[in-house]
Computed example of a mutant assay.
Amino acid sequence: MRSELHTPKDYLHFLIINLLGSYSYAMGIQIFTKPFQIAPGGVTGIATILNYLFHIPIGTMIFMINVPLFILSWFFVSKGFTIRTAASLSIFSFCIDALVVWMPPYPSTSPIAPLLASIFGGILMGAGNALIYMSHSTTGGTAIISAVVQKSFPHFSMGKLLTGTNLIVVIASIFAYGNIDVSIFAAICIYISGLVMDNMVYGLNINRLLFIISDHSQEIQERILHELHRGVTVIKGEGGYDHNQKNIIFCVVSKPQFYKVRDIAREVDKKAFLVGCEAGDVVGKGFKHLD
């Protein structure tokens, strides 16, 4: 999907994906993290703490905190990014304050209930965040801060920034709830959420980068082109031992196609040398759109 919204179909796709993502995220908060006083990092964690202290609706609080961040994003990132994020956050705030409030919290009868709440809350929140991200949008908060910082300081370590932000929120939750255990469950929830999001966003796009060295490279590359309809690049190389000139085939294929390329190489040349590794993010013709 393109990052810009042009047609009614684009808007409908954006709305549906964001509703699904926001609903999943909101369920994670309403059913699991909020009842067990788990502040899952970022703006959501801050809003959860403020909800406990002042009874302000979490969705409303999240939107209010993001208002100054929207202004920063408008001037320092892009108008399109800001508008999409504001739309996603409006949907999310509505879901958590209006659509999931009827859902009962996870029962706290079991001694391991807080642990299970942090795990399943993290799963739902990670899945929701991933869906929203795949619509080329975000739920604001640290995502906006990251975009602003990287725009001005592209070499800045965002991992350290996000870790530091989450750490501050987790420590604040200890003082707010008067319970150190909540920090442990919050850390578990943050970790699970990130793991689920990464696997949904990047796990579905795992491709294979291949280098093939063979004396029959011409036949191999022709079969890749005609049978798999994948482009190849031929790199001129020289053997380190015999100093003979060799053609090295470079190509990127999907995970299922990797095994087909391997079989083609074996069929053409049993002595072919093949090196394959994961290529998590491939942008360009035949893969993800450049935007």
Rank of each mutant, 00 (worst) to 15 (best):
L69A: 12
V101D: 05
L124V: 13
I49Y: 01
I96M: 06
A186F: 02
K260E: 12
D10Y: 04
I213V: 15
I31E: 06
I56C: 09
V148Y: 06
S110C: 12
Y241S: 06
L290S: 11
T139E: 04
G122R: 02
K271L: 03
S3K: 15
I46L: 10
V275R: 02
A98I: 15
T7Y: 08
L5W: 02
A187I: 09
I56F: 09
Y52L: 05
E278A: 15
S90I: 14
F250H: 11
L124C: 14
L12P: 07
Q245M: 14
A130Q: 05
F175C: 01
M197K: 06
P114Q: 02
I174M: 13
S193A: 12
P57S: 13
H55F: 09
S3I: 12
C189K: 02
G59F: 04
N66W: 07
P154S: 07
I145D: 01
S22T: 01
Y11Q: 00
N66Y: 03
E227T: 13
K271N: 08
D97Q: 12
M197H: 08
L116K: 09
I190C: 07
I144F: 03
A265P: 13
A172D: 03
A113F: 05
G121H: 02
D263S: 15
F185S: 03
L274R: 05
I145F: 10
G41K: 02
G178F: 09
S24R: 02
F75R: 15
Q37S: 15
G284Y: 11
R230H: 04
H289A: 15
K160S: 12
A26T: 03
V148L: 07
N244T: 11
G284S: 11
N244H: 13
A176S: 11
V253R: 00
T138V: 10
V232M: 03
L5C: 12
D269A: 09
P68T: 06
I49M: 11
I220F: 03
I224G: 00
G159P: 06
S173E: 00
F273M: 05
G121L: 06
K260G: 03
G239H: 05
R208Y: 07
L53D: 07
D10Q: 03
K255Y: 11
S110A: 15
T7G: 06
P154L: 12
G237H: 08
T60V: 13
A143W: 04
N244K: 13
G59H: 07
Q257K: 01
I65E: 03
T7P: 10
N205M: 13
V282C: 08
